Deep mutational scan, measured.
Amino acid sequence: TKEGQWDCSACLVQNEGSSTKCAACQNPRKQ
Protein backbone atom coordinates (compact mmCIF):
# COMPACT_ATOMS: atom_id res chain seq x y z
CA THR A 1 0.00 0.00 0.00
CA LYS A 2 1.40 3.37 -0.98
CA GLU A 3 1.69 5.99 1.74
CA GLY A 4 -1.51 7.98 2.06
CA GLN A 5 -3.66 5.26 0.54
CA TRP A 6 -5.99 3.03 2.52
CA ASP A 7 -7.74 -0.30 2.09
CA CYS A 8 -11.48 -0.47 2.66
CA SER A 9 -12.31 -2.56 5.72
CA ALA A 10 -15.50 -3.81 4.06
CA CYS A 11 -14.50 -4.72 0.50
CA LEU A 12 -10.70 -4.32 0.60
CA VAL A 13 -10.55 -1.98 -2.39
CA GLN A 14 -7.53 0.33 -2.28
CA ASN A 15 -8.52 3.99 -2.14
CA GLU A 16 -6.74 7.32 -2.48
CA GLY A 17 -5.74 9.03 0.75
CA SER A 18 -7.90 12.02 -0.14
CA SER A 19 -11.03 9.87 -0.27
CA THR A 20 -13.25 9.75 2.81
CA LYS A 21 -15.42 6.93 1.47
CA CYS A 22 -14.63 3.80 -0.51
CA ALA A 23 -14.90 4.32 -4.26
CA ALA A 24 -16.43 0.86 -4.68
CA CYS A 25 -18.85 0.43 -1.77
CA GLN A 26 -19.07 3.90 -0.16
CA ASN A 27 -18.06 2.55 3.22
CA PRO A 28 -16.66 5.40 5.36
CA ARG A 29 -12.90 5.40 5.86
CA LYS A 30 -11.86 3.95 9.20
CA GLN A 31 -9.27 5.93 11.12
Rank of each mutant, 00 (worst) to 15 (best):
N27R: 10
T20W: 03
Q14K: 13
T20Y: 03
S18H: 10
E3M: 08
L12N: 15
Q14N: 11
V13M: 04
Q5M: 14
K30H: 14
N15V: 08
A10L: 04
Q14C: 10
V13W: 06
S18A: 11
A23N: 05
A24L: 05
N15A: 04
E16N: 11
G17C: 10
Q26Y: 07
E3P: 00
W6V: 08
A24H: 10
R29G: 14
T20V: 06
G4V: 06
S9C: 08
R29C: 12
C22S: 02
N15R: 06
T1W: 00
E3H: 02
T1K: 14
G4P: 07
R29D: 11
C8S: 02
T20K: 08
V13R: 10
C11S: 02
T20I: 09
Q5G: 05
C11Y: 00
S19K: 06
G4H: 11
D7H: 03
D7T: 05
C8M: 01
C25P: 04
C25I: 02
Q5A: 01
W6F: 04
S19Y: 14
N15G: 12
S18P: 04
S18V: 07
D7W: 01
S19D: 15
Q5F: 02
K2D: 12
Q26A: 11
T1P: 00
Q26L: 10
Q14E: 03
E16F: 07
A23P: 05
G17M: 13
A24E: 12
E3C: 00
Q31I: 00
G17D: 15
A24G: 14
G17Q: 10
L12I: 04
E16K: 04
A10E: 01
T1A: 09
Q14T: 14
T1S: 06
C22Q: 05
P28N: 09
T20G: 07
N15P: 01
P28W: 10
S9R: 05
C22M: 00
S19G: 10
T20Q: 07
R29N: 14
W6H: 11
P28Q: 14
N15Y: 01
K21S: 06
N27H: 13
C11R: 02
A23G: 04
C8A: 02
G17K: 12
S18W: 01
G17L: 14
W6R: 12
C22Y: 00
Q31N: 12
P28R: 09
S18C: 10
P28T: 12
R29P: 09
A23V: 09
K21Y: 03
Q31L: 15
V13F: 04
K21V: 05
C22R: 02
G4S: 13
A23W: 01
K30T: 13
T20R: 02
C8F: 00
N27K: 13
T20M: 06
K30N: 00
S9Y: 08
K21Q: 07
N27V: 11
C11M: 02
A23L: 04
S9P: 12
G17N: 12
V13Q: 15
Q14R: 08
A10D: 07
D7Q: 10
A23F: 03
C8V: 01
C22T: 03
C22E: 02
K30Y: 14
C22V: 02
K21R: 07
P28K: 15
A24I: 06
C25Y: 01
E16M: 10
Q14F: 04
L12T: 10
S18F: 07
T1V: 09
C8W: 00
G4L: 12
A24V: 04
K2Y: 03
Q31G: 15
Q5C: 13
C22F: 00
Q31F: 05
G4K: 11
S9K: 14
A10F: 00
K2E: 05
A23T: 10
D7R: 06
N15I: 03
W6N: 15
C22A: 01
G4D: 15
W6C: 01
A23S: 09
S19T: 11
A24P: 05
A24D: 11
N27S: 10
E16S: 09
W6T: 15
Q26P: 02
N27A: 12
T20L: 07
Q14A: 13
E3G: 01
R29T: 14
Q31T: 12
Q26M: 12
A10R: 01
C11E: 01
A23C: 04
K30W: 02
Q26R: 10
R29Y: 08
P28V: 13
P28S: 09
